[in-house]
Amino acid sequence: MELTELKQELDQANYIYDDTLATTLYVALKLGRPLLIEGAAGVGKTEVAKVMAAALDRELVRMQCYEGLDESKALYEWNYQKQLLSIQVNMSSEDKDALTKSLFSDEYLLERPLLKSIRSRRPVVLLIDEIDKADEEFEAFLLELLSDMQVSIPEVGTIRANTVPFVVLTSNRARPLSEALRRRCAYLYIEYPDVEKELAILRAKLPHVDDRLCHQVALAVAKLRSSEAILKKPSIAESLDWAAALDALGIRELTPDALRQTAGFVLKNAEDLNVFDQEQEEDHACSCGHHDHHCGGHHHV
């Protein structure tokens, strides 16, 4: 697939992107490297994998990482209950070796996402989400899969990939990832979108919402993100929720009152809401010369 074709596919998937993102995806795809995406929470890292699955017309296999994730949850597990039942049933069997061998066959193998993604007949997109939440041991275990596209199961041997999945790893940078893992990946850092891009996303995802309102939401969100005092910056999903909520409430303009009533959609902790309230009060007291109620309807975001 060439860069222009990839762009067309991304367009068809209704995904808003810039040239940097498209080129990076193209590079990862061409080199057959896993793509490591970092960035703050809510900038659309996971969305990239979903969109790539749609663009490449592949199944998305998702693995959510968490502390304590191990091979049995990520790669494979033997179906112990079924194996024990089989032993009980075939207790009287003459050929003990054949029975032992059959216990470690596909019939008793429970595929987890990693194994599923490399044994699939059709190539898939494998999303390893929030890899920074998994332990370092798990990261080391991933190296074999990412570099050689194979995994080792002691009872079976080495399983090579039937098809090569397009692997997307995401990280919120909660902990630094190992150098070895980074070296095996193509790297992409996603920042919060600027006002134009945010507006384009709002327009694409919420076509029914008034364009002026979308513009005001994009501006307000950009201002909140640029504020040093706001600890949890609003994500793209939150700005979409906010615009949708304003629309559902029948609000056509983001006035100070509307802002105050719906701030909970975009700011999700008490400290940030307090800072927001204080800033609003300061704005009303000084910038327009009128008090809140006589403000003539213009907004102060």
């Binding site: 040239d19 080129t23 990076t24 590079v27 080199l31 970092e38 193509a186």
Partner: peptide, 10 residues
């Protein structure tokens, strides 16, 4: 962008 993707890993 292409070279950055290949060379820079953080």
């Amino acid at each position: 962008t292409a070279l950055r993707t290949v060379y820079a890993k953080s």
